[in-house]
Design a protein around this nucleic acid. Structure first.
Lengths: 146, 146
DNA sequence: GTCATATATTTGCCTTAGCAACTATTGCCT
DNA sequence: AGGCAATAGTTGCTAAGGCAAATATATGAC
C-alpha cells in the first residue's frame, strides 16, 4: 500500500460532514422549525424509544455527557422535550418528547427522509456497503491510536 | 435502489470525523505541542505555500471567513504565525509561519504522517479510490440541495 | 450501618463554526 | 472626481463539543 500522506481523508470527512449538517440546517429552516441537526438526532431517537436517559442518548449518538446535557437544556427550553429525574435511580434523568416535540418530529420526518435519499443519489446499495466497510475500518484504526 | 432512511450516513460521517479530530489532538498532546487539529491544517498549508491570504486559506480548507480569522488570531497569539496587511491590496492580509511555527511543523510532521498511515491500515489504494468517489458524490448531492 | 467507590449529570473554560452586521479598501461607471 | 458595488476581514451572538472538576445518588465491602 502506497504512502498515505497524500490521502486527504480528514479533509474529505470534515468537508462532507460540514455540508451534511448545513443541509440539515437548511431543511429545518425551510420547514420553518427552530431546531439544529444535533437536536434533531436526539428527538429522532426519542421518537423511536419514547424514554431514554441522557447516558443512553450519549452512548447511541457517540456524544459525551456535557454535550448531551446542553442539547437537552436547549430542547427543554424550547419545550420539545421533558426531563424528569428517574424514580428507581435518581441520578438518572428520564427524557421524552413533549406533545409539541412529537408534532415537530412528524412535521419534519418527510423532508428529512427525502434529504437522506438525496444524499445517496447516483449511489447504489453496493456503494453503501463499501462505504460502510471502509469508514468503519477508518474508525477502528483511529480507535487503536495510542 | 432501496430506501435510505436506514442508511446512517450522517452518523457514520460525524462519528468518524470526531474520532479523527480527537486522534490528532492526542498526537499533539503526545508531542507536547500546543496546537489544535484546525490550527495544524492552516500551518501545514502555510508550510507548503509560504504566504497566503486568509481568503485563500479559507477557500482551500472550506472554512468561512470568521472561522479563519479566529484560527489565525489564536496562532498569532501563540507566536506560530505572522499577520501583515498586504502591500498592493491593504484589504488583504499576508499570513506566514514564524520561525517557531516552522519548528513546530517539523517537530510534528513525522507523528502526523504516521497517524495518517495508521488511519488507512487494512485498507488499499483501491479502497481509497472507492471512498473518494463515494464521499465526493455525497458531497455533490448535498451541494445540490435547495 | 458506614465508608469508599462507581455512576449520572452538571458546570466552567476553551476552540470551532455558522449567520448577520459592520469596517476598510479597492475598482468600476459615468 | 464622486459615488457605489464588490471584496477582505472583524466582531457579536449562538450552538456544539472537548476536558476537568464538582455534585448527587447508588452500591459494595466490611
Amino acid at each position: 500500500m502506497s504512502a498515505h500522506s497524500d490521502k486527504k481523508i480528514g479533509f474529505l470527512l470534515e468537508r462532507t460532514t460540514r455540508i451534511a449538517k448545513l443541509s440539515f440546517t437548511k431543511a429545518f429552516k425551510k420547514l420553518n422549525v427552530d431546531i439544529t441537526p444535533e437536536q434533531w438526532i436526539v428527538m429522532d431517537k426519542l421518537d423511536m424509544k419514547k424514554e431514554m436517559s441522557q447516558k443512553e442518548i450519549g452512548n447511541e449518538s457517540f456524544k459525551n455527557a456535557p454535550t448531551i446535557s446542553r442539547i437537552i437544556d436547549n430542547l427543554v427550553r424550547k419545550g420539545f422535550v421533558s426531563r424528569v429525574s428517574g424514580e428507581s435511580d435518581r441520578r438518572k434523568t428520564v427524557i421524552s418528547l413533549t406533545l409539541s416535540g412529537k408534532e415537530l418530529v412528524n412535521q419534519c420526518r418527510k423532508e428529512i427522509d427525502s434529504l437522506r435519499d438525496l444524499s445517496w443519489k447516483h449511489l447504489s446499495d453496493r456503494d453503501y456497503a463499501e462505504f460502510n466497510r471502509i469508514i468503519d475500518q477508518v474508525f477502528e484504526n483511529f480507535e487503536s491510536y495510542d
